[in-house]
Design a protein around this nucleic acid. Structure first.
Lengths: 231, 231
DNA sequence: AATTAAATTTAGACAAAACTAAAAATAGAT
DNA sequence: ATCTATTTTTAGTTTTGTCTAAATTTAATT
């Protein structure tokens, strides 16, 4: 049966799979009424394009995406709202795991990936409160508010900073485990102040000063670190 | 695909449904190599006997239950171990919800029912640590240890206590929402000391003294409250 | 011991979410 | 404007977990 819709709350009842599709489409930019291709979604989700087509039809019937055959998929307002509520949960759980349970920032993703699907509005709100309404997750990504507001920041990639400018490290672009582990090993953490000392034309690597110490980092690293200019 | 067995850890990979069956069989007594009937399981899970048969075969193949056609189902050692690990998670989450997020004890069950299926050994252990290794959940039920030890208590139903004996309220037998709400409303909480003043032969109701005040409670209530004798 | 009632299992079907292989539509290049 | 390569969709299949209805086994009663 499983008709025990005990936790409907204000959601339509969404399956885990539907929620994951919405989240992915949002991350690929489908929230700005931009059309995302079937292929792009399939690649991102490590599934087949035909499966995406199937789901597109289902989500379209539920009014969560706009879908026209061969023309790609974009989120409706309702779709954006739902996607944001999942992203909100994901990021709040990540903060919880790091702040309250001492997870490192490379460990949180896969657990949050599960926790984000727990259906209980009260639970999310209470976690939010317990954490004192954080604005950013451990990777520096903004946490949408309860009513779906998204606070974008004025941030730049470290690689785009001018020589002699300073900024605070506020996020990562690549949040893969190897990259996060690399940052940990080199004591690069959110909140650190970084000053760009010099750029090397040859390989685009940077000489930076961080927390007193000087170091050299490759262009690959610098182009995956977000900093917020503070002057 | 979904072949990303990222969180295998030490579990076999169990589906949510399989986990729920094991838990139910355990609760019906199938852990003591007692055979549980198909019907009993079906009724408890609000499903059909034929579905139970299907699952019995699957769990049997995985070595988690002993199952002989028409002879009922009982848990193997591996099955008991798995069931206990789920119950452990369920009860730890209940404590978390009450202690850290101010849920009332009648609100925790359905959320814990979801949280118990999150696959992350580290998560459970850290929650355990955060809560300071609690021994009992909010309903007074014991929390199995990591290695599956179950600490049974010497407790009695309040209805079985002798006149003039005293005890501490340690748990409930019926943990349905209406019952828990009733207890809340009447300020009956875990930890309260209760003295049995008198029994009424006519309807088996009890006159008790609790936290200074005297009150009368029905047999139905008294036979769903566990107390621990303390003299 | 035979009959009947109840419990249990089988067989066949369905929905969800995925897949494969083949068909159809689009876009790019000449 | 046509052809070709790519993308996307369709059609049909699979797996998981459920269901119904029919068949079978067990248990209870006379």
């Amino acid at each position: 049966m499983l008709n025990k819709n005990v936790f409907l709350e204000k959601y339509f009842l969404m399956t885990r799979s539907e929620e994951n599709y919405l989240k992915t489409i949002f991350h690929l930019g489908g929230g700005d009424s931009k059309s995302i291709t079937t292929n792009a979604i399939a690649e991102q989700m490590e599934t087949k394009p035909s499966s995406v087509t199937d789901m597109a039809k289902k989500l379209s019937e539920k009014g969560l995406v706009d879908y026209v055959r061969y023309q790609g998929i974009s989120l409706t307002d309702a779709g954006v709202k739902t996607a944001l509520s999942i992203i909100r949960k994901h990021r709040l759980w990540e903060v919880f795991l790091v702040e309250k349970l001492d997870f490192t920032w490379d460990e949180v993703h896969e657990v949050a990936e599960q926790l984000e699907h727990i259906k209980s509005e009260k639970l999310v709100d209470k976690i939010d409160e317990l954490l004192n309404f954080p604005k950013y997750d451990p990777h520096g990504d903004p946490i949408p508010t309860k009513d779906g507001k998204f606070q974008e920041r004025d941030e730049k990639l470290l690689s785009e900073m001018a020589i002699n400018s300073k900024g605070v490290c506020v996020g990562v672009k690549d949040s893969s485990v190897p990259f996060l582990k690399f940052l940990d090993k080199n004591n690069i953490a959110l909140g650190n102040t970084i000053k760009v000392m010099d750029k090397e034309d040859f390989d685009n690597s940077l000489r930076i000063q961080m927390e007193g110490k000087e170091m050299r980092i490759s262009h690959q690293i610098a182009s995956n670190l977000y900093v917020k200019k503070n002057d």
